[in-house]
Design a protein around this nucleic acid. Structure first.
Lengths: 343, 343
DNA sequence: CTGTTAGCGCTTTCAC
DNA sequence: GTGAAAGCGCTAACAG
C-alpha cells in the first residue's frame, strides 16, 4: 500500500509527487521519470500527457529523493572566510559560473559567521559531492583530511596537503617582479607590509620581495606583520607617520591594505609616490579610482574559482587528483603609485 | 535482504552508512539515529559505542536520505544577479550568517551566469525549502508566482507581488533628504542619473528626488536613463563634458555610477564639488577613499539579507506572509562631494 | 515504448 | 532504553 495511496494526495498541489503526476497522466511513474530525465525514448503523445500533468499539478520534483536514488548530490560545497572586498566575491562568481555549466548547485559556507566551523563543514559534507575550501579558511588540517577520506576536496590558494589537491594563482614571480619594479625606481627602503604567516599566498609574495632584493644584491627587510584589513593599514600608516618606520616604498600584501595606507599617509600631507611609493595586490576596483592610481598585481580570481569547480567535478567523475598545485598566471599592473608617470 | 547486506559494505569506509555504524556498534540503526540526532535518551554506554563506531568508520550521513525522511531540505535558496561590487556580496553575507544561525544551508544561484534562468530556478526549488530572489533579478513574474505556489518566496528590494512577500530598504525618504541636501547647497540644475525603470529601488530614489524639488517649489528634471555600471557612468560623464547636459549637481542612482562619473569629470579638469556636486547611493568602500569623499546613502545591506533569511525561515515554519514590505531604515552619509567642507 | 518492482539511507512510530 | 519495520519520492534494472 503506502505507494498506492499517493494517489490520495493528488488534490493538494503542494504535495504533488511523481505518483500524482503519473496518475493524472494515466501512465506509470517510470514513464514520468523518463520524460523528466529526457533519457529513454517516450512516445510523443505520452510525453505530452505527462508534461501536461506536470504543468497542471505544478509538480516540483523532490531533489532529495533523486539524490538518494542516484547516489550523488549534484552539488559542490565552497568554504570561504567571508565576502567583504572583491576578492572572495569574484572567486565565488567564477566558481558558481563554472559549477552552473557543469550542472552543479553550489552551497556556500562562510567561516566568519560560524561558531562551530568543524560542525559546519561536516554538515556541508552531508549534502554535497565535493568541497572546495579557501586555503586561509581557519579549518584545521584534521577536518580537511577527514573530509578528504570521504569526499574530494580541493584547497584554493593553499598548499596541497597529503592527497588534497590545490589550485592557486602565481605569487612568487610576480611579487619578485613588482618588488623589482619598485627597487628599479631607485627606492632603497622598501618595506613589505603584511604577515607572511597568514597564508601561502602572502608567504610567497614576501618571498618574491626577498628574491628581488637578492637579485640586486640588496638586503631585504623583515616584513611588517599586520593583518590585511583596512583598519590594520590605517594603524600601520600612523606608526609610519610617527616615525616608527623609515620607508620610501611600501609593498603591501593586498590592495585593501595598500589603499588605506596610501590614503592615511596622503591625508597627513605626504606625497605618494613622491615621499613614499605604494603598491598593492589584487587590482580591486578602487585601485583604479584613487589618485595616484595604485600599482598592483592582477590575479585571475574568477578563473581560479572556475578552476576549483572544474577540478571538483573532475574528481567526482573519477579523475585522479593532481599532486602539483595548478597555478594560474598573474600580471603586474603598473599605474602611478609606484613612481611611474600617470597614463 | 537489501537492508541486510549493508553489512557487507562495512569494509570500504567511503560507503559507511547508518547500517554499517549500527553493525559495528552492535546496536540497531534506530539507536544510531537517536544518538546522532541527540533526540531521545540513549544510555551513556550505548552512546559511546555508537560514537566510537562513527569515528572509526568516518561515517558521514547522507543528507539526501535525511531530507527525504524528514521531508524538508533544511536549506534556503538565494537568487542574485551577480556579485561584482559590494552590494550583493554584503547581502549574501547577511543572508548566509542568519541562515547559519537558523541551521539552514544556503544554495546560491547567480543569474548572470545562467542561460536558462527559469530552469535554474526550477532546479533550485528542487533542493531547498524556500527561496529569496533579488528584485532586479531578471526572473519573470510567472516563475516567481509558480514557485510561490510550491515554496515560500520572498523578494529582496522588489515589490510584493500577489502573495509574494517583500523586504527592502527605505529609499524614497532618504532620496528626498539627499536631493534636498544638494538643493540646499544652492544647486539648481541637479540631475538624476540612473534609470527609474530598472527596479523599485531606483524608482523610489527618483521619486525622492522629485519630491525634494516639489518641496521647494522647484521643477525636477527628467532622469538621465543610464545603467548602473562603471562603464555607463564614464559614458555619461563624457556626454556631460561634451556639453550635452548642463548640471551643477548629479544625484547618481548608486555609488558605482557616481564614482566613475566623478573620476571621469575630474580627470577632464573639472572640480568636484566646485563645478559640479556628485552624490551616490550605497556607501561602498571606495566612497570614503576618493577625494572628495563621496556623499551617499548608507543602506543596511547585511541586515537586509539577514531579514530575508529570517522571513524565509518564518514562512517555512508556518508563519503567515506579511503583505506589507518590511522596510529597513537608511542613513544619509555626508562627505564632501556634495559641497560640504571635508571633515 | 511502457509498467513493475526493488532499493537508495535515514527517521520515526510502535512494541517490548 | 532499544529494536523492528514502514515509509519518504525517485531511479533503474528487468520484463513484457
Amino acid at each position: 500500500m503506502g505507494k498506492q495511496d499517493h494517489a490520495a494526495s493528488e488534490a493538494r498541489a503542494a504535495g504533488a509527487t511523481i505518483y500524482s503526476v503519473a496518475d493524472r497522466a494515466g501512465v506509470s511513474i517510470a514513464t514520468v521519470s523518463r520524460v523528466l530525465q529526457g533519457a529513454t525514448v517516450v512516445s510523443e503523445p505520452t510525453r505530452q500527457k505527462v508534461l501536461a500533468a506536470v504543468e497542471e499539478l505544478g509538480y516540483v520534483p523532490l531533489g532529495a529523493a533523486r539524490s538518494l536514488a542516484v547516489r550523488h548530490h549534484e552539488a559542490h560545497g565552497l568554504v570561504l572566510p567571508e565576502l567583504s572586498g572583491p576578492y572572495y566575491a569574484e572567486l565565488l562568481m567564477g566558481f558558481e559560473a563554472r559549477a552552473a555549466e557543469l550542472a552543479q548547485s553550489v552551497v556556500l559556507v562562510l567561516t566568519d559567521s560560524r561558531t562551530d566551523l568543524a560542525a559546519a563543514v561536516r554538515q556541508l559534507a552531508t549534502r554535497v559531492d565535493a568541497i572546495a575550501v579557501f586555503g586561509a579558511a581557519p579549518i584545521s588540517g584534521d577536518v580537511v583530511r577527514l573530509l578528504r577520506a570521504k569526499k574530494p576536496v580541493v584547497v584554493i590558494a593553499g598548499e596541497p596537503h597529503d592527497g588534497v589537491e590545490a589550485v592557486s594563482a602565481e605569487n612568487l614571480e610576480s611579487a619578485r617582479e613588482l618588488a623589482g619594479h619598485l627597487l628599479d625606481h631607485g627606492r632603497r627602503r622598501a618595506l613589505f607590509v603584511g604577515d607572511p604567516d597568514s597564508g601561502p599566498d602572502i608567504r610567497n609574495r614576501y618571498a618574491g620581495y626577498v628574491a628581488a632584493h637578492r637579485d640586486r644584491g640588496l638586503d631585504a627587510a623583515e616584513p611588517v606583520r599586520v593583518a590585511l584589513r583596512e583598519a590594520d593599514g590605517a594603524a600601520f600608516a600612523q606608526r609610519l607617520l610617527a616615525g616608527e618606520y623609515e620607508a620610501d616604498a611600501l609593498m603591501c600584501a593586498n590592495d585593501e591594505l595598500a589603499l588605506s595606507v596610501m590614503t592615511t599617509v596622503q591625508d597627513a600631507g605626504r606625497d605618494v609616490p613622491g615621499d613614499v611609493a605604494v603598491a598593492g595586490w589584487d587590482d580591486v576596483m578602487t585601485a583604479r579610482y584613487v589618485r595616484p592610481g595604485l600599482t598592483t598585481v592582477r590575479q585571475p580570481v574568477q578563473e581560479l574559482g572556475a578552476l576549483a569547480a572544474s577540478r571538483l567535478h573532475d574528481l567526482v567523475s573519477g579523475e585522479l587528483p593532481r599532486p602539483q598545485p595548478q597555478t594560474l598566471p598573474t600580471r603586474l599592473v603598473v599605474r602611478s603609485s609606484c613612481g611611474c608617470p600617470a597614463a
